[in-house]
Amino acid sequence: MNKNNKKILMICESFGGGVFAYVTQLCNDMVDNFDIYLVYSTRPQTPKNYKEILDPRIHLIEIEHFDVSVNMIKNVRVIKKLRRIEQRIKPDIIHLHSSIAGGMGRLAFKNSEIPVVYTPHGYSFILMRPSVKTKAYKLMEKILGSISNSITLTCSESEDEVAGKLTKRHTYIETGIDLKRLSQSLSKIETQDNKEKFTVFTLGRITGQKQPEVFNKIALLVPEAKFLWIGDGEDRKILTAPNIVITGWKGRNEALAIAKGADAYVLCSRGEAIAESLIENMYIKKVTLVSNVMGNKSVIQDGVNGYVCDTPEDYAKRIKEIMHSYPNNLVNNAYKDVKTIYNSDVMKIKYIDFYERL
């Protein structure tokens, strides 16, 4: 530990999936320049070897029952735990990741003189199907966004536009992936051949956020193509089209092998911060078709580096065009964007500058 380095206290309840990938990469990237403390709570999706993935210089602090509960006594206990941790560590910056940590943390540190950063990783009231609960989440974000010592740091320009309606203090740093690690993984992977049919795929949990009903409609509109969903989830029953194959959950290398052998990547979600799978497939040089929503529309410019679609018919029309003539200029433009914008080297430089200015 360098006594001259600023201390950053990272707090992350949602320690799984895309948030896990983002936070572990950020902690590893920052540990050369700052003393990093990570407060977290494990989930079923948390990799078993997560301690091996994190740099050994990172100080790990695990707390249990770190979730929103109807039992207010439990919530108050978590808030008190966070305050005790902050008092013991005396950080220079507190960075809250995802909505639960963002809610608990902003309440815990609302009277603190320490700068508090909140990264939502996709606002839950946008990602979920509309309901009374999503309206309540949006109201809570507005209330918490008024706390003066916090700044919302989003992962894309369009997510930042949403933040601007919830708080006065906000900015963004684009998500970036580790290209060196991805290149090393790809070099060891043998392409899984899908060439008996033009293959369209997506990746992730089959839930409302990913809009499986839209993916199913696209498949029905393009029966001559094969559609793959790499993943699984509670809404798999929605995927009824006869040309859809649900692969189930695959290890990273096997998922990359399937992606390398496919032709087009579809991301028809309700919203994203920035999906790392989208950036990865841009780098792999797959033509990408995305929904016209938060996150996606910041990365993909329609007809320039991919396609932005509003309806299942839009996706189907573009897929049929791609089957006839593959748009190599688009995939090359997307690849260049990843090399210059959406990579961890660029993200690291921006983060160091952001933390130092705080």
Rank of each mutant, 00 (worst) to 15 (best):
T152Y: 08
S185A: 14
S269P: 06
H59C: 14
I189Q: 10
V23H: 09
L26N: 06
G176Y: 03
I73K: 12
K165I: 04
K195Y: 01
K188P: 03
K348Q: 09
Y22E: 06
E64L: 11
N5C: 14
L358M: 15
E356L: 10
I8E: 10
I274C: 11
I246M: 14
H170N: 13
I61L: 15
I258M: 14
D67Q: 11
G251L: 07
G208R: 03
E196V: 01
S14M: 05
K336Y: 06
L220K: 11
Q192I: 06
T119L: 09
F215D: 14
A262R: 03
Y326K: 09
F354Q: 04
V117A: 09
P47K: 00
R83T: 00
L186C: 08
V245Q: 15
N111S: 15
M140C: 10
E157F: 06
K260G: 13
G164S: 09
A262S: 15
Q87Y: 01
R88Y: 03
V293K: 04
I53R: 06
F125P: 09
I341L: 07
I100A: 11
M294T: 14
P312Y: 02
N328G: 07
I284T: 01
T24I: 12
K210W: 07
I238C: 08
E272Q: 08
D67T: 01
I58C: 13
Q45K: 02
C155M: 15
L256F: 11
I61N: 13
A241W: 04
K195I: 01
I36N: 06
R106N: 13
I100N: 08
C309V: 09
K195N: 14
D32N: 12
N194S: 06
N49K: 00
P91Y: 10
P91T: 03
K210G: 09
T134P: 11
K180N: 13
V76L: 13
N71F: 01
K336H: 08
E224M: 02
T288Q: 07
N49P: 00
R252W: 09
V200E: 05
N5Q: 14
F125W: 09
C268A: 15
I206L: 09
G18S: 08
A334T: 02
V290I: 11
A101I: 02
I73D: 12
P56T: 12
Q192D: 05
V116L: 15
D67N: 09
S185K: 14
L82M: 06
V200R: 02
I274T: 14
P327S: 10
I244P: 09
I218K: 05
T119E: 08
L166G: 02
R106M: 12
L330R: 02
E157V: 03
E196N: 11
N149D: 10
L38W: 10
